[in-house]
Design a protein around this nucleic acid. Structure first.
Lengths: 204, 204, 204, 204
DNA sequence: GATGAATGAGGGTTCATTCAT
DNA sequence: AATGAATGAACCCTCATTCAT
């Protein structure tokens, strides 16, 4: 038998090293050697686990896409649940700065990537956004059923808006933390959306 | 003038060619030669106008940061003005897909860039976001003064949220246009924010 | 205008440098850098003239395939012509040791090469062998018409045999010059083939 | 014996696997891993039997050099024997395409190999060609003694020519089977050489 | 002995940048 | 000013070989 190694563990070590490096310098400027060094292995070893830099990047993204909170505890109270969910999502961004920063390259592939990868990332993106969106839609739906949210509220639209708000705030915050008071903004985000869900609808 | 084309015109041609190429394939994968070809000049010529690929990218970004609509016509009617402003901003993204796509690389520099450039892009970002933010804050402020928006509404927060919503929706839309109904989402964005600005405030 | 260079001349210099290196160490062990050095240019320059090592090798082979002697002066006298032709062919091998040695790699591509190249080399091989074969067939044919060679002699077969003999002798000679007396062997080759072309045919 | 398979059998398995792979893709493009896989062993195991890829190639060549037919049955009738011998040699090429194809790399070492190997392969080449040459020389010699071949015929030259013809025809045939009618060519090869061995000698 | 994980030197290729014309 | 040929540092990836188990 050869050297005893837990391939899965080693693989994960490399993915984690890669996550850190990709996040710090971006895909284009990342050298495989840097990743190897950070993982404490030789350059060639990386290629025993991943066929190419691109494959490794995919693995990194997949590894990142495992964060979303469970919805169960939030569902009972639509009002409170909606608020909790948004904060949980925002936190998940907060918790992993890597995650957010790697999204830049992730998006880049999505928008401009060549076909083999583009399609792949696209499906990844679906699961990626699909889970939080599903959770959000569930609370909204529940709220409608209970009569606390308006019938006319479209759960898909609300979910998109909530995610958009969170991401958009993060984007501005990452650029210049001083200009954004995240706490206040998130509070207002929740409030506005809830108002939109409950207001009598006739504006003006 | 020794030549028929003056330097400024030629320079702009190169910037525009670069904009198109950067947007299409991203900064890292853009070759100076591609830009030169698209601009109809030789590779060396590009270096007569820009010291490096990075400088050229800066010029491209600066050239992009000239879009926002004028606020004047909207200011009189806070309600209508707020709505118009958001749609105008969304349109400006819409109108220039290049613009949005280049933001990816712009952000990348902002977040990870080495110092000479990072600081530079940061200040650029300020003007970049500052103008639309200022316009939004103006309408909100005006609304407060007229008593149509709540006193407690923080113009800075509202502006951030509006921009966040627009950008976040675009992000999702660029990834998969089918999943997002932009029109509905923008309408709800306006409505929610307005509700947040007018609701009696007592939540629950 | 850029540096004034005769691209064709420079290209040829590189091909000639490559010919020497490919011949000396073989395709697989040839480093582009070695070729560049021998041509007195930088590594990158080679790639301005050839897309890849394989393309360069093709160019080398094509450049080599320009040797065959003109037949005209020999055609009148089938006997003498046949002899002269064989010696001329043998000489052309002799003159360019490079040529012969590079054939090894040429054949390797032909026999095992992947499709884009295999087909290409195949067509090259046709012209490569086609010319000497055509010359040989012409003299034989002329001899038949004049009645000095047997009607039953097949020009194609004779041509193949003559070329086979020359190449086969070279192969042995390159391996160990001491074991082969080229002059005597060529004389006997000519004599045998001529005997085969004139003998009454009833063997035994 | 500690294991079921003895070293010699295992060694031979590896050599045979290597023969197949070397023939198919050539020495340079052969990966030890491919050989190991085909032999049904692990990569490291190959190195238990051979110190290096080069050593393994030597072993492959040595294993190949065991083919030639026995002369005894041919010797009695010089005419018939000469013919049979040439066909037997041609068949031996035919039977093992591997053999012929590996010659390419064999020759390459012979011509350009570094010293430790070059000399080695040279001596191998001698035995390699020596055996068939010896057989051919024997029949010719026998024919001279019996008075059916001319005194002036040089057995060494005839042997070289016969081998040259066979190899040269194979070379052309491998490149493009359509262009060569091997049967006809071999018949004419035999006939020509025999004519050369019996003709009255005064050409013209 | 056998295994296969790890290694790292090595080479093909790219491309931003320079510079002679 | 414009050109595009030349440069060479940089980097991805391969694969023969080693070695711990």
């Amino acid at each position: 038998m050869p050297k005893i190694v837990d391939r899965n563990a080693r693989r994960l070590e490399i993915v984690e090293a890669a996550t850190e490096v990709f996040a710090r310098v971006g895909f284009a400027d990342t050298k495989i050697e840097d990743i190897a060094e950070r993982a404490g292995v030789a350059k060639g070893t990386v290629y025993q686990y991943f066929d190419s830099k691109a494959e490794l990047f995919i693995a990194v993204c997949q590894n990142l896409v495992t964060w979303p909170p469970e919805a169960a505890p939030f569902l009972d109270d639509p009002f409170k649940g909606f608020e909790m969910l948004i904060h949980a999502l925002a936190d998940s961004y907060e918790r992993s700065r890597d995650f957010y920063v790697i999204l830049l390259d992730y998006w880049a592939v999505l928008i401009r990537g060549q076909e083999p990868y583009r399609k792949y990332f696209l499906s990844m993106g679906e699961t990626f956004y699909a889970h939080p969106r599903r959770l959000l839609m569930q609370v909204v739906q529940r709220g409608r059923e209970r009569g606390v949210f308006k019938r006319s509220a479209d759960p898909a639209v609300v979910a998109s808006l909530a995610i958009a708000g969170i991401e958009g705030l993060r984007t501005q915050h990452v650029q210049d933390p001083k200009h954004i008071d995240m706490k206040k903004c998130l509070t207002m985000l929740v409030k506005s959306l809830r108002d939109g869900l409950t207001s009598s609808g006739t504006v003006r």
